[in-house]
Amino acid sequence: MTAQDTIRARAKELLESGEVATFIGWEAGRFANQTTPLVITDAADADKLVFDEYCVNTLAKYVRDVVSRGKVGLVVRGCDSRGIIRLVTDKVIKREDVYLIGVGCPGMKDRKTGELLKKCAECRHNNPLEFDEMAGDAVEKPAAAERFAEVAEVEAMAQADRSRYFESVYAKCIRCYACRDVCPCCTCRECFVDARRENWVGKQNNVAENRFYGLTRVMHIGDRCIECGECERACPMDLPLMKLNRKVIQDMNDLFGEFESALSLEDTTEPLIEYRLDDVEEFM
């Protein structure tokens, strides 16, 4: 029995018994080797669910939209489960609002090239960290790429080159806010970019305002980022957003001690909302 069969069978049982009101998984997309997230409320639809090596979307963020209808069942891999832990830690949902069917993830592939996705090549936790039951066994995965390799790459550049590099990044940004919409850490009821009356950020699409948005986004999610890489995958302009996120994470690791966000429900380390009296002092 493959993981996909188990997921279908369990989704059907959960929906029929009324234990969950909605179930989130993936369905086959319009094109070959493409999947798209699927939210079902009817047990008859359970056979539409698929699980293959092209399930690129992370599902955790969808829970926020459907949790008002009742308990949500969903398939979780490593990144989804960390997203759920993030949402629970941020008190967006409660742990008992979700029923998690864990599945080991061998890494997802790009639909067009068939290569391992960048976010999956960098993934450090491919098996779910939080689940109610497992569909199939946990899988082995080759060692992930160096966590901060791409940060070191940019840091090696000269100051003027870095400035130009990030200016070209912000010049490309179209401010569609896909990175925000897909991020399991970005769960403010009203985002600062939507608060038009306060006018934190203007409506023009220029380098200055894109920079303002980009830097603010990093500072808002920096200490909670689960490094799922969804922002980068969702970006229609292919901006290197994880280079920014990882820079902040690397600095926090260096300055405030090793940490990795959302590894368990008990560990809620968030370096920017805590402090120690003997923190690094360089502003004297």
Partner: peptide, 18 residues
């Protein structure tokens, strides 16, 4: 104390961006 942590991170981020 909060400001110190935030500014440490933010200063490094700005320098990273050139």
């Amino acid at each position: 104390y909060y400001a110190r942590r935030r500014m440490l991170i933010f200063k490094r981020l700005l320098e990273y961006e050139g």
